[in-house]
Amino acid sequence: MSQYTAPNLFIAGANGTTYAYRRFGQAGTTPIVFFQHFRGNLDNWDPALVDAIAAEREVILFDASGIALSTGTTPATFKDFGHDALTFIDALGLDEVDLFGFSIGGFVAQEVALQRPDLVRRIVLAGTGPEGGENMHGWADEPHAHAMKDVQDAEDIHYLFFNPSPESRKKGEEFVGRIFTRAEDRDADVSLAARDIQSAAIIEWGIPNPAKLDRLASIQAPTLVANGDNDIMVPTPNSYLLADAIPNSELTIYANANHGFLFQYPQEFAAEVLTFLQKN
């Protein structure tokens, strides 16, 4: 089973949402629940990254309430996204998970770890930042225009996720090819209404407030923080803030990489994630 072929599954949550998800990989291991980026759906996860992790671990990808094929109302805050994620995890009957949060998915992963610490074994926070962090209170004009475009194309992906260098752009072209390879049973697009709700939640999360960092001291699960050295969506200094604030954390910064460093270096990052998750 692969990200290219895993079927779309559905499960009802106690909140009335029917969640769309994919679950594959090595059954019997601690499942890794993946939390997706702004406007992302199941098909925006890079098969090269996810399949490499699934070779050794069970992976679970899902759409939050109101996102793509999941029913229900899109949560208005990341605290509520955390509650929503826990409803999905509870519906699956899981009592221990690892978390993999990318971009705004990292905001959700932090909330899950704070709200239900006994559930979480280990955490991966990729291309993300803490509530109240640095330069997160809305995007600059050009990133905003690409991120909020009603109909996005490959050029928007290149700009938002990859550096303009020839090496990074080539990796971006390969990534775009991978995520559009799957032809059957694809996820639905994220609606513009859900986009706008997510955008408003990002603005609220990003209100500058250094005092918010103190809450991260409550995250006791070992945490891997990683980013590119030139993240224009969640500025790279926020990864340093996370690593400093979470007690049991480690930090890796990838060179010549933007927000989508994990898609530019899928094999390398998958190997790092697996090594991290296998530690005692």
Rank of each mutant, 00 (worst) to 15 (best):
D244H: 05
D187Q: 06
H158M: 15
A154V: 13
L160V: 08
P266R: 03
Y254W: 15
G40C: 14
A91Y: 08
A221D: 04
Y19K: 07
R169E: 10
R39H: 11
R122P: 07
L224K: 04
F162Y: 09
A6I: 02
N227P: 00
F263T: 09
L262N: 14
E134R: 04
I197K: 13
L277P: 04
D153K: 10
N230H: 09
N238Y: 01
T74K: 13
R122L: 09
F10N: 14
A14Y: 00
L86V: 11
P222N: 09
D187M: 07
D153V: 13
I53N: 03
N280T: 14
D150H: 05
E167L: 13
L192W: 04
F35H: 15
A109R: 09
K149D: 08
V151G: 01
E96F: 03
A68M: 12
G106L: 04
L42W: 03
N248R: 10
G206L: 13
S199E: 10
L86T: 08
R195T: 13
I253D: 00
L262Y: 11
V273W: 04
D156F: 03
I232S: 02
D43T: 05
Q3G: 07
A12I: 02
S168T: 04
D63K: 02
I202K: 02
G132I: 02
W45F: 11
A147V: 09
K149R: 15
Q115I: 12
P247I: 10
F102C: 09
F107E: 03
N256T: 07
I253Y: 00
I104Q: 15
A194K: 08
F102N: 10
Y265E: 04
F261M: 12
S2E: 09
R178L: 11
